[in-house]
């Protein structure tokens, strides 16, 4: 009887933890802030429309509208790799001043991949080549592992994104066409208390184990009460 009670109470405790997990995963993602960006893009050019560090609890929803087909890329770099890239950029291009902040790290790494022989360039030299779509393509060829999502060519698209790990995310819009394109992007930050993909399986396991352990004790308790 004591063992059944001990296991039963352990089961009810495990069940409660599982239920709390389910409850915490139920609220839909909240959207505390929104930003939009509109402008024209030159032929065969790409631009960063949003970037920053995201965790499994934070993500964003993007919607893009344009006058011609464009491509959207979501790139994710681990913080460790990002720091490594930052160091490489600072060593390779020491004279770039304000361009050495986080925002330019990914495009500058792409420049370095596309033009490995570029020696001690000035800001103007870099700006001439940095936003060229060929540079982006070369960078993506060299680092295919950082592409988290790539849209098909489209003039209207929407995508919701919550990273699985802590990542430095760069949201890129590229204009592959030979014409100028007007692009409007809206970025809505999303926050969740607990990411569903991490929580659901452990919650199901905990609830199942909890019920399995608690049932014999609950039955015994009921029988004992009815006999009294």
């Amino acid at each position: 009887m004591r063992w059944i009670t001990l296991l039963g109470r352990t089961g009810t405790v495990i069940l409660m933890v599982g239920l709390a997990l389910v409850l915490v995963s139920l609220p839909p993602p909240a959207s505390p802030s929104q930003s939009s960006h509109a402008g024209s893009m030159w032929p065969e050019e790409y631009r960063i429309h949003h970037s920053g560090v995201y965790r499994p609890q934070t993500g964003f929803q993007i919607s893009v509208e344009s006058t011609d087909n464009i491509r959207v890329y979501l790139l994710g770099v681990s913080p460790l790799e990002f720091d490594n890239w930052k160091t490489q950029i600072r060593e390779a291009y020491p004279d770039l001043g304000h361009m050495l902040d986080d925002f330019f790290v990914v495009p500058l790494i792409f420049v370095r991949e596309a033009y490995p022989d570029l020696d001690d360039p000035q800001i103007e030299d870099i700006l001439d080549i940095m936003w060229n779509i060929a540079v982006l393509e070369k960078g993506l060829q060299t680092h295919p592992e950082i592409v988290l999502w790539e849209s098909p060519p489209s003039s209207t698209l929407s995508h919701e994104f919550l990273p699985a790990d802590v990542l430095y995310i760069t949201f890129i819009v590229a204009n592959p066409s030979p014409d100028r394109v007007e692009v409007e992007t809206k970025t809505k930050d999303l926050t969740v208390l607990a990411p569903k993909e991490r929580v659901v399986l452990p919650a199901v396991l905990l609830i199942s184990i909890g019920i399995a352990l608690a049932i014999p004790w609950l039955i015994l308790r009921k029988v004992k009460r009815s006999t009294l």
Partner: peptide, 23 residues
């Protein structure tokens, strides 16, 4: 005990999640 565990687990997950969001 079960009520306390439920509340404790819920608060742990919610407050931990909120702290991560504030980041």
């Amino acid at each position: 005990l079960e009520i306390l565990v439920f509340l404790c687990a819920l608060c742990t997950f919610v407050l931990g999640g909120l702290a991560a969001v504030s980041g």
